[in-house]
Design a protein around this nucleic acid. Structure first.
Length: 501
RNA sequence: GGUCUGGUGGCCGAGUGGCUAGGCUCAGCUCUGCAAAAGCUGCUACAGCGGUUCGAAUCCGCUCCAGACCUCCA
């Protein structure tokens, strides 16, 4: 996208399900055509799992669609490399520090290893890299600055070298809990009087800065102590640094809604004032497996690599990244999605049919006169309508299948299409299947190598000769042996075509 | 216990107050030497119980169930 790219006329119709208001709202950027989007990235202390992939895939499609509409998107997705404590409490151990200690590594070795893994996974699933991928450790200075601002504004206090956000004070004038639907008094009742909480004025308060003891592997100097920043702080700091004090979209997994995102809002307002630092909050829902929550303790979680190789007891076979991507897009991001072998196999077959018709599109012969096929413009408009309705990819895919049906009918002569119609269909697939859904053929259709093509033509010619002589044994032998090699033979009206599995 | 999100046909999954997505599976048919592919047809669902309505799967209430987060526990 260049600055000259005009905004698509369809951009006006985009509606987004806003978690903050619980309403589907028309998307109006603060400063069109520019859009700022922040998504909470992974904590890099272990391999990413499939639930992570789903979240990042969700926002990948959001990003792709905004780009397609002509927006100039600055997409910031962070890497959490310090501050995320085990148990998500304020007195746990740093997840990365713990891993480093257990494996006798430098914390930054842990960070690098799993950042690399994360990037590899994103790549195989065709998830586009963000515009900026900042790290928490790269923004310690800014985090200290933001803490100072919050203290100056009276919303945080120092206690024994640590700094805590004063939730009660904040809640006097602001709606703490607005995003997650929690009420502060109910939270109060549910919070038990923990040991070691005596540094806090109130159990609801959360850490902005933690004083570190000498055993802590990662620590930095600050006005308050040698220590490290609280987990929620980095996202406030990095989002406002790169997107401004008020920006358009903030995304993340549903599980981050509380307390992480709630605290982010409080921090932003506590530091900069205002009342709504983020216009649209989007939350991707969770992935379940065979109807049960995916978790390591139940042994039903698997890594992307296990999924692709099929090397896991719950997997009947391996599934390609595109199959998984397509499968996930067949459900809406805001709902839970159940991951099962039959569902994956269905997606695999469905994707194959979709891709196959996409390939067929290039072989269609146009007619001169009036075409006999469904209204292709209507198809395109339905595709936009689907995406404009809170990124409804399942409905978009249904529209694409209507196109598939039309293409196959055109190929077999039951329908006809003009050159203009073919171009429209090609644009439909290029825009929606490729650019927006991020689907690509994983194997070159029909080889693409001259020598392979030549060999196949020879074989098909020999087989055609055998068929002409009603030598079915020879014809079937060629076909069966090719199937064993993963080459599928299809006898059509206009001759024989072939595809690789 | 609290907050939130869901419960749709054999499976996965959209959706709107009335005109019953889509994919996969299964059965039949067409095409085909036989297949494969493709097309056509069929299988017609909305957790349960009430209520609102001319009409609800779609709105309201209650019940049951599942999941997430908080809590608890480790």
């Amino acid at each position: 996208m260049t600055a000259e790219t005009p905004l698509s006329p369809h951009a006006d119709g985009l509606h987004i399900g806003n978690s903050l208001t619980r309403e589907k709202e028309r998307f109006v950027p603060i400063n069109a055509p520019y859009v700022g989007m922040y998504v909470c990235g992974p904590t890099v202390y272990s391999n990413v799992h499939l639930g992570n992939v789903r979240t990042f895939l969700t926002f990948d499609v959001v990003y792709r669609y905004l780009l397609h509409l002509g927006y100039k998107v600055r997409y910031v997705r962070n890497i959490t490399d310090v501050g995320h404590l085990t148990g998500d409490t304020d007195d746990g151990e740093d997840k990365i520090g713990k891993k480093a200690r257990l494996e006798n590594l430098e914390p930054m070795e842990v960070v690098q290893r799993y950042t690399n893994d994360f990037h590899d996974v994103m790549r195989v699933f065709h998830i586009l890299p963000p515009s900026i991928e900042p790290t928490a450790t790269g923004h310690i200075v800014e985090q200290i600055g933001m803490i100072s601002d919050i203290i100056d504004n009276g919303f945080a206090y120092e206690s024994n070298g640590s700094v805590y956000f004063d939730v009660r004070k904040f809640a006097d004038d602001h709606d703490y809990g607005a995003l997650s639907g929690r009420r502060i008094d109910e939270l109060q009742n549910q919070t038990r009087a923990l040991e070691g909480q005596n540094e806090k004025r109130d159990p609801l308060d959360f850490a902005l800065w933690k004083k570190a003891d000498s055993s802590h592997l990662m620590q930095w100097p600050s006005p308050w102590s040698e220590g490290f920043p609280g987990w929620h702080l980095e996202c406030s700091v990095m989002s406002t640094k790169y997107l401004g004090k008020t920006f358009d979209i903030h995304g993340g997994g549903m599980d981050l809604k509380f307390p992480h995102h709630e605290c982010e809002i409080a921090q932003n307002i506590g530091a900069h004032g205002g009342d709504r630092p983020v216009r649209y909050w989007l939350h991707g829902n969770m992935l379940t497996v065979n109807g049960r929550k995916m978790s390591k303790s139940e042994g039903n979680g698997f890594t992307p690599e296990e999924l692709i190789t099929g090397n896991h007891k719950l997997l009947e076979k391996g599934y390609s990244p595109m199959t998984v991507r397509f499968f996930m897009l067949q459900g809406h991001y805001a709902g839970t999605l159940d991951f099962s072998n039959p569902a994956l196999q269905a997606a695999e077959k469905g994707l194959e049919r979709l891709m196959s018709a996409w390939g067929t599109l290039n072989t269609l012969q146009p007619v001169e006169g009036p075409e006999a096929c469904p209204d292709l413009d209507a198809l395109k408009n339905r595709a936009y309508a689907a995406m404009n309705d809170d990124f409804n990819t399942p409905v978009l895919i249904a529209v694409l299948y209507d196109a598939v049906k039309a293409i196959n009918s055109m190929a077999s002569g039951r329908m006809s299409v003009t050159a203009e119609g073919i171009a429209l269909l090609q644009a439909l697939f290029a825009d929606f299947a490729h650019d927006i859904l991020g689907l690509e053929p994983e194997m070159p259709e029909g080889g693409g190598h001259d020598r392979t093509d030549g060999l196949m033509e020879v074989l098909c010619a020999v087989r055609a000769e055998a068929k002409a002589n009603k030598d079915w044994a020879t014809a079937d032998l060629i076909r069966d042996r090719l199937v064993e090699l993963g080459v599928q033979i299809k006898d059509g009206k206009d001759g024989t075509s072939w595809t690789f599995d």
